[in-house]
């Protein structure tokens, strides 16, 4: 499995994402600059956290129009894996790859802490190494993570099991609707989440609960490609 981690001007979790993929899967991961127009060689594309384009206009609004995003759209259309973390999640909603939008935190404060997440759907290509309903500890760090979707969208997310992670009871840090922390598209190959699994892959970081996200993706890819 080959992973591309996209670097926009202002990305700051790109190196962490590369290191997390390599450490947890033992597979190669490359940093790919935002001007790149082809991602054909890659199986997984990670849109990492940070402040792409300084969050000008809205978080993710400008990054969406950079050259690499056309390639990310193609990659997703082909059914290959896309993982958006934090600012990456914001970019994927702005690009229309995931429904809804991320608003300023209800508290208006930037929130940085490790908190509990409930794995709502452990049957996805990204989460099958977790148990359904399991609570894991993953850090967050964001000012605009307050997920919003209108009633109709929310109903269809619920009905199709597209809500993958929710903040654990009483730990919603941003006011997101239905305590949503991460969602997947209807095809099941694009996941967006505000928490940072790449920051939870070593005991030294305080949690290893992010590991199984990356190993889930690896085994999904291996199963699909007939490799043991």
């Amino acid at each position: 499995m080959k992973t591309a981690v996209i670097q926009f001007p202002g990305s700051n979790c790109d190196e962490d994402a590369v290191k997390a993929v390599v450490a947890t899967t033992g597979e190669a991961a490359d940093l790919v600059w935002y001007t790149e127009e082809k991602l054909d060689d890659y199986d997984l594309v990670i849109v990492p956290g940070g402040f792409s384009y300084g969050d000008y206009l809205r978080a993710g609004a400008i990054a969406r129009f950079s050259p690499v995003m056309k390639a990310v759209q193609d990659h997703a259309r082909k059914g290959k894996y896309v993982l958006g973390i934090c600012n990456g999640f914001q970019i994927l909603t702005e690009a229309g790859l995931l429904p809804g939008a991320l608003r300023h935190n209800e508290s208006l404060m930037f929130q940085s802490m490790t908190l509990g997440l409930v794995v709502e759907n452990a049957a996805t290509k990204f989460t099958h190494h977790y148990d359904s309903g399991e609570t894991i500890r993953i850090p967050i760090a964001h000012g605009e993570g307050n997920y919003f979707a209108d009633e109709a969208t929310l109903r269809s997310l619920e009905a199709n099991d597209q809500i993958v992670f929710r903040y654990a009871n009483g730990e919603n840090p941003n006011g997101s609707v239905a305590d949503i922390a991460g969602i997947i598209n209807d095809k099941g190959n694009v996941l967006g989440m505000m928490p940072h699994p790449e920051r939870a892959v070593s005991e030294l970081l305080g949690s290893t609960d992010g590991k199984r996200l990356f190993t889930s993706i690896l085994t999904s890819w291996r199963d699909a490609h007939g490799r043991a």
Binding site: A61, F65, E94, P99, A101, R103, F148, A149, D150
Partner: peptide, 8 residues
Amino acid sequence: ELLTNPVI
């Protein structure tokens, strides 16, 4: 297309 996010 750009200046607003019609979702919100």
